[in-house]
Structures are given as structure tokens and as C-alpha cells.
Computed example of a mutant assay.
Amino acid sequence: MNSCIMIGVAGGSGSGKSTFTNRLKDAFGDRVTVIYHDNYYKSNDGVPFEIRQRENYDHPSAFETDLLIRHLKALRRGEKVQCPVYNYSEHNRTRETIELAPSRIIIVEGILVLENPELRSLFDIKVYVEADADERIIRRIIRDVTERGRHVEDISEQYLTTVKPMHYLYVEPTRATADIVINSGMNDVAFDLMRTKIESLLRPE
């Protein structure tokens, strides 16, 4: 698959980047492949749950980004890959993998996908989704309680000790590297522009 186009979608936790990515996935279905950087969190096997809860998951070193880079290069060569699966409730990687096949459009989503220079260089289109800090923490609390089985106290502690400081150190600076900056995952104008761009890329040459 020589003409594979890779799109990186970054932004702070709760910014709406997953919403934006999932809207594109819903629009194009199997014609696009979506990869979540979160699934490449390093394995915490052998680490007690209490310690796993307090790990810094917003620092670049928390991810096995070199594996993601290898997988993206393999997909670009037309090869299938076995993507890891992460369990947020357990703060650990599962034993499962998901087989991903190459496609014309590959979207990679995550808070730090634009932070690593080698990873960033693989993207043909770089998108940064931003939102007000209050909106981001509210969305994070709702998501983590309803979808990940976490407690508000733990979410608040994690946000203040790691999520917030890491956002300003590592996530927000990547905004300057983006080709497109949008102010919400529900920004219909930005979505329509990106959908039109992807449709044009998917047309037979």
C-alpha cells in the first residue's frame, strides 16, 4: 500500500480528540483504520495495583511509542500488525491484541502523538484539538467515572499531580507543530473540511 496517508490527532485529555476521531471513523467505516496511542501504554505486569494507580500516564515515557512507530511503518508497507489492548480500569495492558490491516487512511489519536519527532514525521496531516481547561477536566471526570469505573477523588488527584502539569509540559507545546488546530471535537466546520479532504484522498487515482 504505497499511497497510505497517515493523520495524527492530538490534544489534551478531554479536549474532544477522540470524539473528532470517532466521527471520522463513523463517516468512513472500514475505509479508514484508527489506532489509539493509549493502547501502547507500557505493560505494568508485576506492579501492584495501588502503584499502577499512581503512575504518571501523561509522560512520554509511559508509552511504548517505538512499537507504535514500527507498527505504522509496517502498515505503510502493506503489512498487518497486532495492536496491543489496554485496560483503563486495571491500568495495564491485556493479553489480547487486535489485528489491524493496512488501509488508504490511517488515523492515529492520542495526547502525545505529535510529541515524538519520529512519530510526528510519519504523519501527512497533523491535527490538534484544543478546549478550555475547565471543559477538559469536566469531560475527563464524566468519562472516567462512567466508562472506566474510577472514583472522583482518584481522578482529581491524578489530574492535579500528573495530567495538568504534563499537559503544559508536553501536550500543549505540540500545538505549534499541527497543520490544523480546532477548538472542539464537535466543530462541524472542521469536521466537514477533514471529511472532504479524506473523501478526496479516497477517490481512485
Rank of each mutant, 00 (worst) to 15 (best):
4 C>L: 12
6 M>H: 00
6 M>C: 07
8 G>S: 03
11 G>L: 06
12 G>S: 03
14 G>D: 02
15 S>M: 03
17 K>L: 06
17 K>D: 09
18 S>T: 15
18 S>K: 05
20 F>L: 11
21 T>K: 06
24 L>T: 00
24 L>A: 04
24 L>Q: 07
28 F>V: 10
30 D>S: 14
34 V>H: 03
38 D>A: 09
40 Y>F: 01
45 D>W: 06
47 V>A: 09
48 P>Q: 01
53 Q>A: 13
53 Q>C: 15
53 Q>T: 12
53 Q>R: 15
54 R>C: 13
57 Y>A: 01
57 Y>W: 15
60 P>E: 10
60 P>Q: 10
62 A>L: 10
64 E>S: 02
69 I>M: 04
70 R>A: 13
74 A>M: 10
78 G>N: 10
78 G>S: 03
79 E>Q: 14
83 C>V: 11
84 P>Y: 04
85 V>F: 09
85 V>L: 13
89 S>R: 15
89 S>N: 06
91 H>F: 12
93 R>T: 11
97 T>Y: 14
99 E>H: 07
100 L>S: 01
101 A>H: 11
102 P>S: 06
107 I>M: 07
108 V>A: 05
114 L>F: 04
119 L>Y: 03
120 R>V: 07
121 S>W: 03
123 F>Y: 10
130 E>P: 00
134 D>I: 01
134 D>K: 12
141 I>L: 13
147 E>G: 14
150 R>K: 14
152 V>L: 15
153 E>H: 07
156 S>Q: 09
157 E>Q: 14
159 Y>A: 13
163 V>G: 06
164 K>L: 15
164 K>S: 12
167 H>E: 07
168 Y>M: 09
169 L>I: 07
170 Y>D: 07
171 V>M: 05
172 E>A: 12
173 P>K: 02
174 T>D: 04
178 A>W: 02
178 A>Q: 05
183 N>P: 01
188 D>S: 09
200 S>T: 15
201 L>H: 12
203 R>I: 13
